[in-house]
Design a protein around this nucleic acid. Sequence first.
DNA 1: ACTATAATATTCATATATGAATAAACCTGC
DNA 2: GCAGGTTTATTCATATATGAATATTATAGT
Lengths: 148, 148
Amino acid sequence: MNKPAKLRSGNPGTADGQMMYSFVRAAHVLESRLEEALEQVGLSLAKFGALSHLVKEGEPLSLSECAMKMTCVRSNITQLMDRLEADGLVRRAEDPEDRRAVRAVVTALGKERYAAGARQVAKVQAEFAKTITGIDRGSLERVLSALG
Amino acid sequence: MNKPAKLRSGNPGTADGQMMYSFVRAAHVLESRLEEALEQVGLSLAKFGALSHLVKEGEPLSLSECAMKMTCVRSNITQLMDRLEADGLVRRAEDPEDRRAVRAVVTALGKERYAAGARQVAKVQAEFAKTITGIDRGSLERVLSALG
DNA sequence: ACTATAATATTCATATATGAATAAACCTGC
DNA sequence: GCAGGTTTATTCATATATGAATATTATAGT
């Protein structure tokens, strides 16, 4: 009982629906590749993301600032920092300006690990760049920015 | 110390990298919309996905079959079924053919809930369809299928 | 028939995420 | 200066996901 192809293109109930699912699935695959690549250097995507923001900022960020930059709730950062601290990649430091705040300081090991992670991510990016060859960049950018 | 725009387009280290991150972020936003829409009818995306496969199959699936259809590990399904069973949407049944197997049976409530979820998902799909207006379907499909 | 191997679901430990509840420190309006 | 509200991080409960270890059942090969 399959619908003929004619009914399937441009029909919001079928073709576009498939497209939406494909989109989400493709993103999951991409994330898996990133996770796998980062695993080679002892990082997860979450850990790399946190290190990335901290390294790029160049100076310690409060955990609230981390949460904002990573668009997640603060309790998530609390746990992530626990794990990063256990790995010796980050250190919690008091904020002399605000005694409520805790600032995350990247350790030397954290910086090395971040650099190694960045090299791994670059490989996946290169693959991704090859994959999207042949799609119009402008349209894709517009769609992606329209989505979020 | 920003690089001029010229250096940023077509440069694998910047523009394409941004694109990859945008892609993943956009998918997350889309998923959040789906979660939010499904929450209105008491479902999560994971629960809806499981119900979806079961309803479409038309007959009970073993938990291993569910895991394969949802491309996840079996222990995940064990837990998901626990929650679906607690919600009264699914029931575990013995498999007379294979005493190791457990089959997931959708309850009447489960079918209703699935239908309500499908209506919610359809709304998000319609939005998504609008968003991707103006991008070439063929290229997008090729890219998405190349990714996974 | 018996033994070795495979497949089944579950449990456990862990990682990631959310959101509610809490405690401590900060800030404002009076 | 203090009461009341806000912001800080943490803890707890929960949902989702993985992978290792386990127990039960099936199936092959002998």
